[in-house]
Design a protein around this nucleic acid. Structure first.
Lengths: 234, 234
DNA sequence: TCAAAAGTGTTTCCTATACACCCATGA
DNA sequence: TCATGGGTGTATAGGAAACACTTTTGA
């Protein structure tokens, strides 16, 4: 390995002292089911945090771009690609991982739970209601909180939540999703007005079926208005 | 080093293949001078990018928190501590650094150029107008662009720009700063109204001196309204 | 007396919010 | 016929933006 002369004023430590950090990616994968915002978690199997939930993560390979690592992890764990994925924050406290110096970059993603069969591997992969989680392994609860805050900021302006819904959805489902994410109640009339005004929805002229009340109209997301912007890492 | 069993399903590579990544921090330090937004840069001395500007950065030490590293770099290069510093994004393309696998986490900071004597070391440290920069060493131009975008988002809602001004400033200086950051012209009357309404300013009942026109009133930032929030890494 | 910037109000428009009733469907 | 949610409109308030003239000071 060549000497990194850009950093050469640090004479005291040699390169091999620095190239001893591992970088991981942790994905906070949100889903929506039964009117609740959920997050994909897995039982932790290291002894320090035995039995606690942890996020889906993996080490970044030496020959792998950081962004690519996040896509790989999502693909490996859920079978999904071409979904919304966004980098949120990098956590780097010295002792955040008991096995050594591991710095982690976190991404969040939004997927429609029902559309895909999760690859339930050897480990206990599980959709857990976000609001029920009070602690996790490592610093993952802090990571979850940070990503949830970011999600709440982003949904105010950006049409990303459609990734959480089936292709066809009713306005009730959409509003229920916003209420789950923001953890507030919204006025139905104003909600509808706002969405029609923003022109994010395409009326499918179809109706819900198998609901025990008057069926609502179904809509799909007006993807054409946004192109690929809402689908790729920024 | 203990085996990281959390990642043990990756059988093909051993721990020592992963713990070979270096992590750096790059700081985008903004200043304001002569009505222009400037950024602190340094001449690059590695052969691949000889003579190009680069950001202030350094490798994260193995026993140093990521956030601490950003404070250390700022302190070493500018003598400043207790300034606004915020993590923006982590860049991790495989070949972004010619000397090896170096992933960098970027922070931006806002400092008042005039208040401090920069520690001009052996290298050519320099305040450069942001708008004049078209290319930089490494991926630093992309980093700069990303941080500038973040700055523009943040100043819309958060009172952070006061770090760029002297303690006492006129409304003209404040407006000129906003115009420099956002790269737009603002209406003076609406600008004044907005700031008085937000209650971010304290009227010092003092006036500018040595200006070749009618002196304006001086104000200071109403720090009490925000406590430490605007001063620390979030 | 001139140049340059300080200081000041009003109107308009748009958006956000609050709020209540009838309608269609399935059970 | 009843329960459940679907669907609709209006009034109000507050913030954003557009816009022009007088005043003060230094040169």
């Amino acid at each position: 390995m060549k000497h990194i002369s850009r950093f050469s004023h640090l004479g005291e430590l040699s390169d091999k002292d620095y190239f001893r950090i591992a970088l991981s990616v942790d994905c906070v994968i949100f889903g929506f089911e039964d009117g609740e915002l959920k997050v994909l978690v897995i039982k932790c199997n290291i002894k320090e945090y035995k039995g606690k939930w942890s996020l889906l993560g993996d080490l970044v390979r030496p020959d792998e771009d950081l962004d690519s690592a996040s896509y790989r992890i999502l693909k490996e764990r859920t079978g999904l690609d071409d979904v919304y994925l966004e980098q949120v924050h990098t956590f780097g406290k010295v002792n955040r991982h008991p096995a050594g110096r591991v710095i982690t970059t976190t991404y969040f993603s939004l997927v429609n739970i029902k559309d895909y069969q999760l690859k339930l591997n050897d480990n206990e992969l599980h959709w857990h209601p976000v609001n029920d989680i009070k602690e996790m392994a490592f610093d993952h609860f802090e990571i979850l909180t940070t990503c949830l805050e970011r999600l709440r900021e982003i949904v105010e302006d950006h049409p990303v939540v459609f990734n959480l819904l089936p292709r066809k959805f009713s306005l009730r489902e959409l509003q229920s999703l916003y209420e789950a994410i923001l953890n507030i109640k919204l006025d139905r009339r104003n909600f509808r007005k706002k969405f029609f005004m923003m022109d994010w929805l395409i009326d499918l002229n179809e109706y819900e079926e198998d609901v025990p009340h008057r069926p609502g109209k179904l809509y799909k997301f007006n993807q054409a208005k946004f192109g690929k912007k809402a689908k790729k890492v920024s």
